[in-house]
Design a protein around this nucleic acid. Structure first.
Lengths: 115, 115
DNA sequence: GCATTATGTGCACACGCGCGCATACATCAA
DNA sequence: TTGATGTATGCGCGCGTGTGCACATAATGC
């Protein structure tokens, strides 16, 4: 594989929306709560967080809109859950795209060979 | 591996600084330029970007501070380069931490049967 | 019907941050 | 030295957005 081909493959998987979902500290805490709790309603997610429930609700909407979380309504509560497969696939795709680029072209600062 | 153990492993690799490095659109463009150009000085990186050179310079500093880029001074120019190994390792660590959590506990909403 | 619980939303505020400009600093050439 | 080039930084502006409050909406229980 050529360097430009590897570079293009790497460019293709770079998604700003995915990163924006995790770049806010509070939103990352929400993600952490979802990891700990698994499937949970907004009240349970917001319980240990200092922000208002409405704020957590908005963050969850953002996460869902980014494709990293899904919601299911049950009666008057809304349960949220991380979309594990999607997250893993995204991470794997980025890693698989970046790996060959590092191998064949960008020895980088901490690389020894490359005579 | 238990669910909580997998969850803790997943929490450990969640790094806000890493995501913040890629969440800004302009900064992502800088990363794209670095992927295309490989090692390059600030002038070359900022050449095709609409923002001012000083802005690109600041973004590169942010990327370096986040550990995803490195700079080397040569005379009066500063060459930047993505820290490929670090990026790949981070992505791999996140994927490897999230994968078992998805497998053993969070089948998720739409489990697609794939390897 | 009314009350309670759970969540969504309009609104205004404040903080952060990306941005460009001007300028200072560093390096090289003549 | 002086001038030119490349980069960093101080400053202010403007927009995006996270935040909380109050209220609206929906669903359950009485």
């Amino acid at each position: 594989m050529s360097r430009s081909a590897a570079a293009n493959a790497c460019l293709a998987v770079l998604d700003a929306a995915f990163f924006k979902a995790f770049c806010d500290p509070t939103r990352l805490e929400v993600v952490r709560r979802l990891i700990k709790l698994g499937r949970a309603d907004i009240g349970a997610i917001a319980e240990a967080l200092p922000q208002d429930r409405s704020v957590i609700s908005r963050h969850l909407q953002i996460l869902e809109h980014a494709g990293v979380a899904v919601s299911t309504r049950e009666g008057r509560q809304v349960f949220y859950e991380l979309n594990g497969p999607v997250i893993v696939d995204r991470l794997a795709a980025m890693r698989d795209a970046a790996a060959p680029l590092v191998e064949i072209c960008c020895p980088g600062p901490a690389r020894k060979s490359r005579a």
